[in-house]
Design a protein around this nucleic acid. Structure first.
Lengths: 334, 334
DNA sequence: ATCCTGCATGAAACCGATTACATCGCTTTG
DNA sequence: CAAAGCGATGTAATCGGTTTCATGCAGGAT
């Protein structure tokens, strides 16, 4: 059944020309005469010819594909980034392959980082081994990054973003501000945590060890953080919390509400990411907006530039974030 | 820089054997002797050889890739389905390509439905033209389906699922039950709408035209539906609403709350999908749980079975849904 | 001793396009 | 009028593996 797929030689025979001419007529029409082009065209439709990508790839030594490595496809945070990537890659003639680094094994990853599999790589997972990614194929990193890997990065200033959140809460008069961090070792967690500590220090506010709760970006870890927060004695319990992800913030709010705590009356909450849904929960969440689609677009554009061999400074691209003030934060009570 | 990539002949020379033997040693070790295998192995590591997929694909006449066509990557609903697909495909030696049918043009789609680009297709978008997908490459449909396309389908019973929602609300004593439908023409919207109408009729409950509001599955359309609902006169306003997606339910609840309406005291709300977040909003949403990861897994498994040429009955696989009762629904007030 | 069998291996065809190079006919230029 | 230039096209090498077929050799059966 596959054997009957017409080859370029079938088209050539029908059109009465050589395969070379067919190839030219299809991929570089300017090279052949008007008549030939028409003859080839009608032969193509007559045979139902479709070219074999594998053969072309072999000859061209390129695949036309870009692989995105995401830590967890099930996490909606990445959807919009991928969407941004796809919106740039598609029109440029590349197609996007997506691999979940969780489901793909370590050797599997290496297989992706190969020129014969993909022309380029967009890495969205900072926990990958730098060695597996080095050298083989052009890559850029987006959002997260692998320490020690030299590659263009497209990201936000997580430190400064955390500062925005802290400033907002401090400006509202809060003096005991807590933080729920992301997974230990994650580059984003670290940056947001240290940004928080820095800004609190800069404003002369305390940041005792107990004010940092450990999370992992997930909804449920936010819920658990809420339980830990509830345990704290009244006069050491923060009146405002900055959480390193919106998912955790949602989990946190839902859990404290279940215990009769009111947000923002009893505690103000700031999230991180501005995923679409948090504008529509109650109370609508104050959060740091990450330009997710733009992160994807810019990462894809930088990769394309490298692939085309254009000059592209090695440095990081920092995209701006924005504090979105909604109803989950309020002035501190006396 | 690409030129220095070692070829199989380099390995062969170093190992003192022919390329045929190297190929066999790598892809079918049982065929060569112990000694040869070892010699090839060390030659491979010495040269840093990695085989060229394009060349192998050309010869094998397969690509090792499966394409998933999703209507909108930015919609988190699909993330977990894709995750389920990837979890099956990865171990089976296939890699998953994901294409957003929104960003890929119509011709782009046709390019994906080709044997030289992908060995199989998983279609998650019911709005594609059946013609573009017919015949070229094995495919299965998941969640949504293209009317008129013959292919194995993996889905839920949307009609019956809507019935579950209606039953729940009716059992709580609600007599005026409204529905917010998904986008017009969408197969899921239609099934859920008619399932709602059927079950209401079966229970002798009214379902006037005004009780159906038009949405498009998005958060914002849920918000707009809330505004329409608020406009309704008190005695024609439904006391319970069943919305065809969780996103719309969230938008609906947030908007009515903004207008001082309490959920579930003033209106009960049931959603559809059970996306992770809705368990953690307030009030936690009563909804129909779709087994998203399982949908993806089963679809991938059926596709693999077809690719292996194993017998696979053409029919639909119907996966069970579940009514998850949370706090957004309550008995009707007198 | 002869023949057969089977294993390990090499030579070469093959997958299906692209493209460097050669060719041919015709026009332009000195 | 010969040389050079140019456009359109064909020939054949090439991309880098896989696989068929042939071969050589060792061991077992007759």
């Amino acid at each position: 059944m596959k054997d009957d797929r017409p080859r370029i030689s079938d088209v050539a025979r029908l059109a009465g020309v050589s395969t070379a001419t067919v190839s030219r007529a299809l991929s570089n029409p300017a090279l052949v005469s008007e008549d030939t082009r028409a003859a080839v065209q009608s032969a193509v439709t007559a045979t139902g010819y479709r070219l074999n990508q594998a053969a072309r790839n072999l000859r061209h030594r390129r695949t036309g594909g870009i692989v995105a490595l995401v830590p967890n496809l099930a996490n909606p945070f990445f959807s919009q980034i991928l969407s941004g990537i796809a919106s740039v890659l598609g029109p440029a003639g590349y197609n996007l392959l997506i691999a979940d680094t969780r489901t793909a094994g370590a050797e599997g990853l290496l297989a992706y980082a190969e020129p014969s599999r993909a022309d380029g790589l967009i890495v969205l997972d900072g926990s990958l081994p730098a060695a597996a990614l080095t050298g083989a194929v052009p890559l850029v990193e987006a959002c997260e990054w692998v320490p020690g890997l030299v590659a263009p990065r497209v990201k936000i200033d997580n430190r400064a973003a955390a500062g925005l959140a802290v400033d907002h809460l401090a400006d509202l008069g809060h003096r005991r501000i807590g933080h729920v961090a992301g997974p230990r070792g994650n580059v984003l967690s670290e940056a947001r945590l240290s940004g928080t500590a820095e800004r609190l220090a800069a404003r002369g506010l305390p940041f005792p060890a107990g004010a940092v709760l450990q999370g992992d970006f997930s909804l449920d870890s936010g819920r658990l953080a809420a339980l830990a927060w509830l345990e704290l004695a009244g006069d050491s319990r923060p009146t405002a919390m900055f959480l390193a992800s919106d998912a955790m913030a949602c989990g946190f709010i839902a859990e404290v509400q279940r215990h009769g705590i009111s947000v923002p009356r009893d505690v103000s909450v700031v999230g991180f990411d501005d995923i679409e849904l948090v504008a529509h929960v109650s109370p609508p969440l104050t959060t740091i907006r990450q330009p997710r689609a733009a992160l994807g677009r810019v990462a894809a554009e930088r990769l394309l530039r490298r692939l085309r061999g254009e000059a592209d400074q090695e440095g990081d691209t920092i995209l701006p974030v924005e504090l979105v003030i909604r109803a989950s934060t309020a002035p501190a009570r006396e």
